[in-house]
Write a protein that binds this DNA or RNA. Structure first.
Length: 487
RNA sequence: AGGGGUGUAGCGCAGUCCGGUUAGCGCACUUGGUUUGGGACCAAGGGGUCGUAGGUUCGAAUCCUAUCACCCCUACCA
């Protein structure tokens, strides 16, 4: 029994790193802060992409692509925006290399200095709004509902695979609207889409809400967030949708003529989720034996393991099952390896998070049955070979549902409502997770709490519990809000 | 960014303090054989500029300097 993954209780961070590596999701690259997303990890991203993309299309959005490089001057145009990102940007200063005159290798050609430096996009609001300026003249040009799938770079000091890397993949939607109400509605709609995706596909329960002024996206008037809870009791912001008001329209002079022939500034939104979702997926469902994936996002849903090894008779039966499963749109493969023994393979597929494993040996064939093991509970059942594809199809749905219910039970169990600052601190210390408390609405109080407890205001949820008194200042509070230590 | 730690074969490590033949071990890999319903065993092999660059020395994985990367804990962020 070779244990390859550190237990969560022993070292949670190490557990996470072990899973990312042992399940083949990603590995460190030669470039500081940048990871190689390996085929399995990327296949999960492709699943996420394709589902989200179709949800974006359903809500009327189309894809486009804007440049990786942004002229430095663009970032100076929206004061708050630049404040939020300037410190962590990669800057391109030259456009040519030359042979090193003093030795081997190449050096930057000093004569190839750019007149204006280019910033590697940390997000694309500026280059996109600079473009929209030319696209929008009339109310008839609105709305513009564009999304782009892209990579972005934020020069983070400390990085962790998927959760925080210098370069990451994401999608960013950027929409332009004639009215404030329409833009707000758009931001809320995409917030809803993210929540639905998280719960229905990732099987990850989220709390929906708005960010406080302090936690808002730089340049936004309102930021909507979905907040998930990881198994170590820390919150993870999984997707944000921003109502940007007219800040970018004003900075880039994006105006349109309304039907009264009057010039108006355009209203904007932006919204995004990133490869961080893969980190969220890992930390929501996985256990000490390895990765656990919800069937809807698992690159491989079923594996058939011939026991003890493949032979003609076993493979013949296995192929039949494969055909039946594929007919149902289920992804499946037969393990044709002859070297390793079943026990090794079982452990291996569990580590890699394949939701369902079918064991098939001569004994099964004699009894006209297969052994079906589910990854989420590790239960094994013998089921009749005839109709086993139906059983598997139902089981995949059941696993998807069970993962959500399990995560939700954990999450709900880790929402603590408190009415005093002492209780707040105690809950945070003893239990972690989300803490629901009255807050007076001031940044000052929020920062005091953060400073004293390390907990941040995650969101102001939609379902408020009514008015009360702030746990810190005793001042009137409109509703309870959610605090947590966060990633 | 602050504190702590680690870089020796794909992975995990010993050797470093106290310099000295040809740099070892376990797993993984290759080949052959025996096995086979929860991480098999035996045997024979392959794989290393000891993170990188300088320096000290007759001689450096080992000492010195610089540098890079990664991990853990804080701080910051998607």
């Amino acid at each position: 029994m070779a244990k390859e993954i550190t237990d969560r209780s022993e070292n949670y961070s190490q557990w996470y790193n072990d899973i990312v590596r042992k399940a083949g999701l990603a590995e460190h690259s030669a470039v500081r802060g940048c990871m190689v997303i390996k085929p399995t990890g990327f296949a999960i991203w492709e699943k996420i992409q394709s589902q989200l993309d179709s949800m974006f299309k359903e809500t009327g959005h189309i894809n486009a692509y804007f440049p990786l490089f942004i002229p430095k001057s663009f970032l100076s145009k929206e004061a708050e925006h630049v404040e939020g990102f300037a410190k962590e940007c990669a800057v391109v200063t030259h456009h040519r290399l030359m042979n090193n005159p003093d030795g081997p290798g190449v050096v930057v050609d000093p004569s190839a200095k750019l007149e204006e430096e280019l910033i590697v996009r940390p997000t694309s609001e500026t280059i996109i709004w600079n473009t929209y300026k030319d696209w929008i003249k009339s109310y008839r040009d609105l709305p513009i509902l564009i999304n782009q799938w892209a990579n972005v770079v934020r020069w983070e000091m400390r990085t962790r695979p998927f959760l925080r890397t210098a370069e990451f993949l994401w999608q960013e939607g950027h929409t332009a609207h004639a009215t404030k109400a329409e833009a707000i509605e758009e931001a809320q709609q995409m917030h809803e889409v993210y929540a639905r995706f998280a719960e229905d596909y990732m099987a990850m329960p989220v709390i929906k809400g708005a960010k406080s002024a302090n936690e808002r996206f730089a340049g936004a008037l309102e930021t909507y967030t979905i907040e998930a809870l990881m198994q170590d009791g820390k919150a993870l912001q999984a997707g944000t949708s921003h109502f940007l008001g007219q800040n970018f329209a004003k900075a880039f002079e994006v105006k349109y003529l309304d039907n009264n022939n009057k010039e108006q500034f355009v209203w904007a939104t932006s919204w995004g989720v990133s490869t961080r979702l893969i980190g969220a997926l890992v930390m929501t469902h996985s256990d000490d034996d390895g990765l656990v994936l919800p069937p809807k996002l698992a690159p491989l849903q079923v594996v058939i393991v011939p026991i003890p090894k493949p032979n003609g008779v076993i493979l013949e039966h296995a192929e039949k099952i494969v055909a039946e499963l594929k007919a149902k749109g289920i992804s499946v493969k037969i393990d044709r390896d002859k070297k390793n023994r079943p026990g090794f393979k079982f452990a291996e597929y569990e580590m890699k998070g394949v939701p369902v494993r079918i064991g098939l040996g001569m004994r099964d064939i004699e009894n006209n049955q297969v052994e079906i093991a589910r990854r989420d509970t590790k239960e094994k059942t013998n089921v009749p070979m005839d109709g086993c594809a139906d059983y598997v199809a139902k089981l995949l749905d059941e696993i998807q549902d069970n993962l959500f219910q399990r995560a939700k039970a954990y999450r709900d169990d880790h929402i603590t409502e408190v009415d005093s600052y002492d209780a707040f601190k105690e809950a945070l210390e003893q239990k972690g997770g989300f803490i629901k408390a009255h807050w007076d609405g001031t940044t000052e109080t929020e920062l005091k709490i953060k400073d004293e407890t390390k907990a941040t205001l995650r969101c102001i949820p939609e379902d408020d519990g009514g008015e009360g008194k702030c746990i810190v200042t005793g001042n009137p509070s409109k509703q309870k809000v959610i605090f947590a230590k966060a990633y």
